[in-house]
Simulated scan of single mutants.
Amino acid sequence: MSRPRNAAATKAALLEAAAKLFGERGFDRTTVRDIASLAGVNQALLFRYFGSKDALFATVLATQSRELLEDSPAEHLLRNVLLRMMDEKPRPEDHPLHAVLRSSHHDSAAEVVRRQLGEEYARALSSLTDAEDAALRADLVLAWVVGIGVLRSVFGKQPLAEADPAKVAALVAQAASVLLERTDSG
C-alpha cells in the first residue's frame, strides 16, 4: 500500500503505527520494518522524519503525554490518567503507560520515561499543592499510578485487575488528596 507524497500524512501514519505497535509489543519487540509496513511507507521515511527508532518512541510518548495533559486540567489529571489506563477495552495506543510498561527495561525508553512522562506529569501534579515538598509528593503519586498499572495490566492482580475503573480512580484520588490538596477526589 503506497501513500501519496505528503510529509505530514506520512509522519502521522508513522506515529499512529508506532504508538499501536509499541503499546502492543513494547520497544524491543517492535521493529522499524513493522512500523513502516503498518504505516504503509518505506522504512527509510521513518529515519528521514524521526532519525531513529528511539527518537520515534520518544515522539510517540511525548505526543500522547502532551495530549492527555492538554485534555485534563491539573486537578482532574490523576483521575483521567487512571480511567484511561484502566479502560476495560484498552487500545494500547490510547495511553503511553502501556508502551512504557512494556519498554521500561530498555535504557533509552527509561530515559524517555523520566524526561517526557515523569517531568511533565510531575510538574502538573506538583501544581496541586503549596507544600515545600511538592515535587516529592507528585513523584509519590506518579509511583502509585505506575504501580497500579503494573499490578492491573501486567500481573493481572485480583481484585484490582477486575475492579471498576471509576471506583479505583475515586479511591486513589481521595487518598492522593492528602498529598495533593487540589486533586479532584470526587
Rank of each mutant, 00 (worst) to 15 (best):
Y121M: 10
S185W: 10
D107L: 10
K53Q: 07
R152V: 04
A18W: 02
E24A: 11
A74D: 14
E181F: 02
A138N: 03
T59G: 01
S126R: 14
R91I: 09
V41Q: 02
R152S: 15
M1A: 12
M1V: 14
A58I: 06
D184K: 09
L69I: 13
R114Q: 10
S65C: 14
L180I: 07
G40N: 12
A19R: 04
L125I: 04
D87E: 15
G26H: 03
A74Y: 05
F57T: 01
G186K: 13
D184Y: 13
E111A: 15
A19E: 04
L97F: 13
N6M: 09
M85C: 08
H98G: 09
G26M: 09
D94C: 03
V154F: 08
N80D: 12
R137F: 05
N6W: 08
T30I: 04
A99F: 06
A99N: 05
A19G: 11
N42P: 03
H98M: 12
T31D: 05
A13D: 07
E93Y: 05
L180W: 01
L69E: 09
E119Q: 15
M86P: 00
V154P: 02
G26D: 04
K20D: 13
T30N: 04
P92E: 08
A58R: 14
A176G: 10
A161H: 09
R102Y: 08
L38T: 07
L97I: 14
A173M: 04
K53E: 04
D28T: 13
L136M: 10
L83V: 08
L101Q: 12
L180P: 00
S2K: 13
K157P: 01
D71R: 15
F50Q: 01
A134G: 00
S126G: 06
R115E: 14
S153D: 12
A143H: 06
A176Q: 00
E181M: 05
D87G: 11
L77D: 02
P73Q: 12
S153P: 02
A173F: 03
D71A: 15
E132S: 12
A12C: 09
A135G: 07
D71W: 08
D184G: 00
E75W: 09
A99T: 11
G147T: 07
T59H: 06
A131F: 06
A18T: 00
V178F: 13
R48E: 12
L46P: 00
L125P: 00
R152W: 07
F155W: 12
L56N: 01
R79F: 05
A62Y: 09
A62T: 10
E88V: 10
